[in-house]
Amino acid sequence: MKIAITSEGRTLDSAVDPRFGRCGYFLIIDTDTDKVEALQNPGTQQTGGAGIQAGQLMASKGVEVVLTGNMGPNAFQVIQSAGIKVVTGVSGKISEALRAYKDGKLSPAENPSVGSKSGMS
């Protein structure tokens, strides 16, 4: 199973980026092989629709679960339509977040956690 975590850097020691559409990187971890792919987010500088694009990127990468800090309504709609689970409110190190999810300590969100355009910076 592929898990994507929004990250400030390229490694498992990096901090979770609280933003979804405008995060620095997506770390995509394959839990079957423990292979890690660091994907630079093309949407960091985009002026609008970054969350929608990031959602489609997750779908095209075959991600099944996304761990992040916050997700707005548009991105949430894309992610849900693609059948991807989301956990919001995640913070700390990537490795810690991954461990917590594997241990069943994180439960998927039912609703977007923030309003539109929250992650603009």
Binding site: G48, S118, M120, S121
Partner: peptide
């Protein structure tokens, strides 16, 4: 005035 500059101002102030 699409709101994008407004969002930028708010986000920077928040940071």
């Amino acid at each position: 005035n699409s709101g994008k500059l407004v969002a930028k101002v708010r986000e920077t102030a928040g940071e």
